[in-house]
Design a binder for these strands. Structure first.
Lengths: 144, 144
DNA sequence: TGGATATACTTGAGCTGTCAACAATCATAC
DNA sequence: GTATGATTGTTGACAGCTCAAGTATATCCA
């Protein structure tokens, strides 16, 4: 019972404390991170919303902010006029790297301070079993 | 890195899915739970805010809702005029029990389905090391 | 072909929580 | 006693997200 809370707490702190320092929400950070790893550094909004675990409207709004900051751009899909790609800009990539540095350090600090290597691995293994709750469906490519 | 997310996801689902069904936020549920365990079933708002990990204003607003629903009442403290207790009502206790039943079942289901007894213990132990981040300070009694 | 259904995305309204500024009370030191 | 500072709690403005409804495009099938 209480173990959920303990963790929720820490997550919240991460969220606000660390990442807000860079002017990025944790979710914004995740979007940037995801995009940076995606082919051509762009993704459909739907896929993004599934990975970030946000509703489509959440994504729209989140991206609106990132677009205004110049970190992502909109790009249309040739084969499907419904989709609007979110495309990571160079600025966005730069911002990600900058934030990443501090963020990773912070996270690592917090964990390394408390866990051994082996424990971390155990924790990861255990936690990895959880998500399937509501996530399925593969990403659909725009060029069939 | 990714293990935080995995877990944050599940937590969020819990939050919305399970508890919203009973008309209670996860935080509201926690408040009720805390109050039910507190002496005289009441707590100061400050202490509540520390345990729930919410800002004071968050608590004010959360309690406002619970008061309107009749689950908690305000009670003043004889020895310190600044504090307003949050006092769990009988209705509140009933509501808690009702929600608790379903909630505990849901949570248990999710975990039991995926973890053995031992793994659960391991997980708990590991997770328990995290919170100290920002939590300190003991609860101050109102009758010195 | 064309009508029904599904998918991708956006928008308005509202909820939950934060932050900053505030009022009231208490505790302490002179 | 009375000024100073800390503690307790509330409020206004706003951020971030969800839900429900709406638009536009795509897909299927008769």
């Amino acid at each position: 019972m209480g173990l959920l809370r303990a963790h929720a707490s820490v997550t919240r702190r991460f969220n606000a404390d660390l990442v807000a320092d860079h002017g990025l929400t944790l979710n914004a950070y995740e979007v940037l991170l995801r995009l940076s790893r995606a082919p051509d550094r762009r993704m459909r909004r739907v896929d993004l919303s599934e990975e970030i675990l946000l509703t489509p409207s959440g994504i729209t709004r989140l991206l609106a902010g990132l677009e205004q900051s110049g970190y992502v751009e909109r790009a249309s899909c040739a084969s499907d006029a419904r989709v609007t790609y979110a495309q990571l800009t160079d600025d966005g990539l730069a911002k990600l790297r900058e934030a990443s540095e501090a963020h990773v350090a912070d996270v690592r600090g917090l964990f390394a301070e408390r866990y051994s290597q082996g424990e971390l691995q155990t924790l990861r293994d255990l936690l990895e079993r959880l998500p399937p709750e509501g996530a399925e469906d593969e990403s659909a490519d725009c060029t069939p």
